[in-house]
Nucleic acid binder design. Structure first.
Lengths: 183, 183
DNA sequence: ACGGTCATGTAAAGTGTTACATGATTAC
DNA sequence: GTAATCATGTAACACTTTACATGACCGT
């Protein structure tokens, strides 16, 4: 599934500009999809050319002018068809885990730093997840609840695992550290 | 981090052919990286051109001939430098979660099917993880242990979450089903 | 004044996926 | 005999990332 289809999906929920859609990727989709402006704007142009969305441009003298996109009936049908045909894949790409895998080739300092950074990122993601859940206005749909809960469950598992197992890569690696303290 | 660098990393552990490396991606790296032959073979050719690996071709009359790659000292240094510079990102791309997010636009049958399929895939991944851990021969390194445990911890969290929460998207969606049984 | 947010878009470069092309060997 | 596994590689295509280019508005 490509960014184009995801944009169409967002527009099936509500009218939005490219900028709004980017926000949606950063909040609602943050657990499972990323996209930048460089993918979103061309995608919207293509959707428009294909007649799957329409575009109202708010003229604000000079400047780019905010463009609000709306899905057409053809667009809605196309999205539903895409959902029917999409294979439910689930793919991870983690440089963090690559680094952990090759822990023996890294200095202990750097390892600690990387683990701390990952731990901080996880805490950040919790905060962002809370922000998303408590948006004032409409309550979460069933799908949003499921996905939000899924993200949180996996985040919790990751946090716990890292806390309890970071010693596997941080210790024994080099035998240089003279303090084996804490009886 | 690209496939080329990962291939170099594998070769820092042991000599291998392109085919062997593919196997490595499917087992050791299965939790966090995927790569096909179409990425691996060109990567090995480039590494060879750059002098980061050498290549011994086992001549077997006719046919392609198995090529066994070995890392050079320059290659080892280059990999260690890459580890130093790599940002520890962690990215998920999940069509499965997209489908769940848009559950309201899908028929209940299809939803059930998708959830069952994901559940089966998770069980498969457990089996593959066990196979990897119990390879006869050398015991797991610290890095391998950490990554293998991480993968398993997240798999367990995903399994549990799906079991306990699939009703969120499978039920209430359409009110058509006449059986609300089990008072 | 300055930094952050809002706002759109293009072009080039980098990367990965898929399909194609070929063929031997091993296990059932 | 048939399917799976071993084994390598190319070419076309698809997609994303990054850098660039521009500029207003709002709050402090």
């Amino acid at each position: 599934m490509d960014v184009k289809t995801l944009c169409l999906g967002v527009l099936c929920r509500q009218d939005a500009s490219g900028y709004d859609i980017k926000k949606h990727f950063e909040t609602a989709f943050s657990h499972f999809f990323v996209a930048g402006f460089g993918s979103i704007y061309p995608a919207l142009a293509e959707l428009s050319d294909a007649g799957l969305v329409t575009c109202d441009e708010e003229c604000r003298q000079g400047k780019p002018g905010r463009k609000v996109y709306k899905v057409t009936e053809a667009g809605r049908q196309a999205f539903i068809a895409a959902l029917r045909e999409t294979e439910p894949r689930h793919k991870v790409r983690s440089e963090f885990l690559v680094l952990m895998y090759f822990a023996e080739l890294m200095p202990t300092d750097r390892l600690r730093e990387v683990l701390d950074q990952r731990a901080r990122e996880i805490e950040d993601l919790f905060i962002r997840a809370d922000e998303f859940d408590h948006r004032f206005g409409h309550p979460l749909s069933a799908g949003e609840q499921f996905v939000s809960g899924y993200g949180r469950a996996l985040l919790e598992a990751a946090r716990k695992y890292i806390q309890e197992n970071r010693h596997l890569v941080e210790d024994d690696d080099e035998q240089e550290s003279p303090r084996r303290v804490t009886a």
